[in-house]
């Protein structure tokens, strides 16, 4: 009945810091699913794609269009990174929607690691490509001189809060959604246990709500993967074209 219980990490084998946990298991399952799906869907590729091949092409085109629109043609060199991030987050979120499954992205350390990967890529590539001119990112054009210290301070703070907001958004959405689902599912059992036959009748209300929320959670699972991808592209765009 504890709505937090679903996020428990239990070691399956191994001990301490090197244990293979249920979280690791679902991460491996996510990567295997994506790899198998893409390999099998494109192995016998034909000019007129079948169902699986068009699904793979659809996901490629979807991410490629997002990258081209937000980071330009130059951003396509980061396509492998962006596509891997999108597929990993999406499939991990969707795995979490299966009852009794573990949601990898509901742990902040996982999403924070992904966000730090993105931000480190942005900083390293930004300095490698633009040198010291990368710092123009913090100095918007056309600002009066006397406002400059304030604006630069705000820009620096906003840049530093990016990894936090990127990771916490995904983590908190998955956490809050799954807790809400379990709370409403708990109402069904509690009503039936407390009121007997009348409770079974009344339990239809929270059950319907839980079903509706499940649908909403599928939307959130996709939307958050998309938001993570598009923000990655926008941050990469800062590294490719700083100073506007």
């Amino acid at each position: 009945m504890d709505p937090i219980h679903q996020f428990q990490i239990t070691p399956l084998f191994g001990e301490g810091m090197f244990a293979f946990t249920n979280s690791s298991l679902f991460m491996v399952a996510t990567v295997l699913t994506i790899t198998l799906f893409l390999i099998l869907a494109t192995s016998r590729s034909s000019l007129v794609p079948g169902r699986w091949q068009s699904l793979a092409e659809l996901s490629y085109e979807f991410v490629a269009n997002t990258v081209r629109q937000t980071a330009g043609q130059e951003g396509m060199r980061f396509f492998p990174l962006v596509f891997s991030l999108f597929m990993f987050v999406l499939i991990a979120n969707l795995f979490g929607m299966v009852p009794y499954a573990f949601t990898v992205t509901s742990h902040i350390i996982v999403t924070f690691a992904l966000a730090m990967l993105v931000i480190t890529t942005v900083i390293v590539y930004g300095f490698w490509k633009n040198g010291i001119r990368f710092l123009r990112l913090f100095v918007p054009a056309g600002i009066p001189v006397f406002l400059m210290p304030l604006v630069v301070a705000i820009e620096v703070i906003s840049f530093l809060s990016r990894p936090i907001s990127l990771s916490v958004r995904l983590f908190a959405n998955m956490l809050a959604g799954h807790i809400t689902l379990k709370v409403f599912a708990g109402f069904v059992v509690q009503l039936a246990a407390a009121l007997g036959l009348v409770g079974w009748g009344l339990a239809i209300l929270p059950l319907g709500m839980a079903v509706a929320l499940q649908g909403l959670e599928f939307l959130v699972a996709f939307l958050q993967a998309y938001v993570f991808t598009i923000l990655t592209c926008i941050y990469l765009n800062d590294a490719i074209h700083p100073g506007h």
Binding site: S165, V168, V227
Partner: peptide
């Protein structure tokens, strides 16, 4: 894309209070 970006940035502030 801009709609989703604006939504994400705005939502981040609500997420911070959570």
């Amino acid at each position: 894309a801009r709609l989703i970006f604006g939504f994400a940035v705005t939502e981040a502030l609500g997420i911070f209070s959570l």
